[in-house]
């Protein structure tokens, strides 16, 4: 058994990260997948936690829409209003953010505190 293998940490739940960040005085938003249609990359209930600097932990897709969610989270942290985001199939020609897998997801972004 190598040291590398024994030192691995379990992937933390984003909710634990959110509590730590709050305790450290950071402003935090939580994004949650509330609905999916078709082949969505992450199941309903999956969460992403974001701070005001754009640091994040967790996932709501396979990395396809996280960028857009993180950018919206900045606004949610600023004004405290929750937002419901919807992402569909990626449209590469229109440079629209989306899911390459062909599914659709709805994501609720809300500020903590």
């Amino acid at each position: 058994m190598t040291d590398v293998a024994t030192e691995v940490a379990a992937l933390r739940d984003p909710l634990d990260t959110a509590e730590d960040w709050l305790a450290g005085g950071r402003k935090v938003a939580i994004a949650t997948v509330v609905e999916t249609w078709g082949s969505a990359p992450r199941p309903v209930g999956s969460q992403l936690v974001i701070d005001e600097q754009g640091n994040f932990d967790g996932s709501v897709s396979g990395g396809c829409v996280e960028g857009a969610v993180i950018s919206e989270a900045g606004d949610v942290i600023a004004d405290g209003k929750p937002r419901m985001l919807e992402f569909g199939v990626a449209d590469e020609t229109a440079w629209r953010v989306g899911l390459s897998c062909g599914g659709r997801i709805r994501v609720l972004v809300e500020r903590v505190g």
């Binding site: 909710l15 509590e19 509330v34 809300e110 500020r111 903590v112």
Partner: peptide
Amino acid sequence: MDPKLLRALNAERAARRAAILVT
């Protein structure tokens, strides 16, 4: 979300008890 709610939810999770957050 109220930070108290987040802490309460995390406490349930840490104690291996099932909980539901209703939004």
